[in-house]
Amino acid sequence: MLPPEKLNKHAIANAFLRREYFVYYVFILTLLFFTVTLHDVSFFSVTNFMNVIRQTTPVTIMAIGLTFALAGGHIDLSIGAVVALAALVAALLLQMVPVPVAVIGALMVGVAVGLINGLLIEWLKVSSLLITLGTMGVITGVARQLTNLESVPIIEPSFNFVFGSGSFGPVSVLLLWTLGIAALGYLLLRKCRFGRHLLAVGGNEKGARAMGISTIKVRIMALVLASSAAALAGLLYAGRLHGARYTLGEADLLTVIAAVAIGGTSLFGGRASILGAVIGSWLMGLINNGLILSGFSTNEQMIARGVILVVAVAIGVKEQQK
């Protein structure tokens, strides 16, 4: 055991350098940087921050879901495809059934995909990377087939209000969704037995099994959460855009993975942070927004975004290796 004074010094230094906190520093730095450089173009304003939240919410929700899959040691590449399929299913169902039924139907798409992913992975004992790569293809195909590539409009005002277009004063409903899902995710991961078992499975699979934890059940549940979150993200896209199309979510997968990784969740299981995933996704949105406002050309934006990502990940990974 370390003597107390030595322990303290270490503890303080470690507390500030912990990888978990890294994303918050980067976030604050980015915020400060853009506030200073873009002071003349309303970057630091409620309207603009609400823009960022609104644009980022589906990614945030997907990031929270993916955090669960990663916590248990699985990756889920099919989430982007689930977004499109769930949005289309919701839009189609809204033409036939009441709003709550359509919403449940769309969420069931997520649950079903999660179950299929989980069962295939556990039964075939194949890596989640390969299985979800396969199901991603299948789901994308089904989504394209479903409406023969046509987009489906949604003219149901209550749906559009609740799932993206509504606001209370300046506060978009999407901010409420973000906060609600983040709180739910946090409690489930940190305060409930399921979250503890999931992290145990991700941290030491053999150990968890030896202690009698059903690793299969826990991991399948995590994948169901990941794709259900993606289905919800699909609803939030549909509500904001007043319609669904098969291309929704297709560009989001990498952003989501980057957001989760920067947020301090290990890509190999056992370590996860819901708050990190939220801030990580906001960071991605903030960078995007700041670069647009700064008037860079599309190419310059791509370069800047790439450089920021590499720097962030490099520092983050280095911190992890300590």
Binding site: S45, N51, Q55, A251, N289, I292
Partner: peptide
């Protein structure tokens, strides 16, 4: 005058544009 490469980017671009 702003360019885009992916359809998914235009929402952010439009929001920023009317803000500015």
């Amino acid at each position: 005058k702003r360019g885009f490469t992916k359809e998914s980017e235009t929402s952010s671009i439009a929001s920023a544009m009317v803000l500015q």
